[in-house]
Design a protein around this nucleic acid. Structure first.
Lengths: 276, 276
DNA sequence: GCGCATTACGCGAGGCGTAATAATT
DNA sequence: AATTATTACGCCTCGCGTAATGCGC
């Protein structure tokens, strides 16, 4: 039977034009290719080459055969690629999230429930998350609201309430609660990786400027060393503790408290059952 | 690298369900397949099977791999098929003809001009011939008229005149020429393989019945032993000699004389150049 | 003289079979 | 007892490299 290494050699000759170049590219000797091409002709039962004086080139049969060869080789590579990808996917849980805190909790739970799985997570907006869930990119997602859809399973996944973290000297630092509009206009420190929480301050405090810090260390450092107000949430404080040298004042706007839902496809429930 | 014989074994296991059945089908031993499957898993770098008690079966990776394997194997068979077909076509000249006599001459000429080619011919009606020429089915065709078309090459290929072959006792046997209507109503012997020549008698002698003989021997025998009129042509007599025991009377209708044209595509002229 | 194709000869990896073992029906 | 998967061991094919020859720019 004809074999892939022969097709590879055929394709290489088609690509490089001479046996020597092809042999070099394949890390083989020229004699090897001479014999291979002869064997190939024998197995096709057909002449594939024009033998010029000191030059070997395809005839029409050879051209056709080489085209098919590259197609078959590509398909073989695709097969390897796809099977490996499928295997990788079967050992990986991919989550999408609207916010980092519930994602961390989900990651912890997943790592515990599926110790042999690789677990990854990424932040996207809600529509992107749902689309990614439905096209198989995510096995589960975290949404800040209860989803709708016959194809979905969900489970409550905790709540989170936004609060101001004010320097002790701030005029409003002693209040028990604040509405966001009361600080509208003040410039604030904002950590970049907070998912959908970006929306609320931008909407409720249109006159404030937000100094966005993408580096976690820089952010905590600035919170301690500056008098700029910043944000914190109850859930984040449970994970990381309260910010140092700050008064935490809960935000009273109803949108500042959200309930999270872990969501998966009903047809994909088996892959994340232990989390639901 | 992964090889086709491995994919064949993979596909066979997918088809037959057990290593033993697959081994039998491939004329291999079971141990060989055990090792092959292990090697295959190693080369994929991925597990392909569920190892049950005394049963081996694909997991999802294996299913996917086997599907791709059969696709690749089919494509390989197709490649062999197509290349061989192309080669065969390049060693074959296929002609289409409207009548047998010029076809014989064309065959003789082609066999002489292209001694290494296989030559074949078949009779069709004129429209079918032109269509077959244009779709590559024929390298050349014989038409009973001068063709039109920018894409065509042609060459005169002789003439042929139809005649009556009458028994000596026939009342019209001594005439120098006859019109077809003069024998209209008489039943006649007709050889089957005469191409387009079937049209003219049917049209000009609507009241005659034609006793069609598909066997050449039966036809000549009947011509000798019966008093039924039959047809012959000048060109056929040059090939086979005059019919025994018959008076040959040329037909005077102008349609009874045709000029043949050998026709080929301009783009296909190189394949039949020596004939044009 | 250098590059390309081809032939001759020997090596060694690897694919295969046989024999043997184990587990299941 | 029969069937299936698996392991151990040795054979032998066949794909490869090295060396050498022929041929042409």
């Amino acid at each position: 039977m004809i074999e892939l290494f022969q097709l590879e050699q055929l394709a290489a000759f088609g690509k490089y034009g001479t046996l020597s170049k092809a042999a070099e590219a394949l890390h083989l000797s020229q004699p090897t290719l001479t014999r291979s091409m002869q064997k190939l002709e024998a197995e096709f039962g057909v002449s594939l080459f024009r033998h010029a004086k000191n030059k070997l080139e395809f005839n029409e049969n050879g051209e056709l055969a080489a085209e098919h060869a590259v197609r078959i080789l590509n398909q073989t590579r695709d097969m390897l690629e796809l099977v490996r990808a499928k295997d990788r996917a079967s050992h990986t849980l991919s989550f999408g999230t609207c916010a980092p805190v519930p994602a961390l909790i989900l990651l912890q739970n997943a790592a515990q429930a599926y110790p042999n799985m690789a677990v990854s997570t990424e932040s996207k907006d809600n529509e992107t998350l749902l689309a990614g869930l439905r096209n198989g990119e995510y096995q589960a997602i975290i949404l800040p609201y209860q989803p709708e859809g016959q194809d979905l399973c969900w489970k409550e996944y905790g709540t989170e309430t936004l609060a101001f973290a004010l320097p002790p000297g701030h005029p409003l630092a002693n209040r028990d609660g604040l509405y966001m509009r009361e600080l509208d206009g003040e410039n604030m420190l904002l950590y970049a990786d907070i998912g959908f929480w970006h929306e609320l301050p931008a909407q409720k405090m249109p006159h404030s400027r937000f100094l966005i810090q993408s580096d976690r260390f820089a952010f905590t450092e600035l919170v301690q060393s500056s008098v700029l107000p910043s944000f914190v949430t109850d859930a984040a404080m449970r994970l990381y503790g309260p910010p140092e040298n700050r008064k935490v004042v809960p935000i009273l706007d109803p949108e500042a408290t959200v309930a999270y839902y872990a969501v998966c496809l009903k047809q994909g429930l088996h892959r994340v059952k232990r989390l639901f």
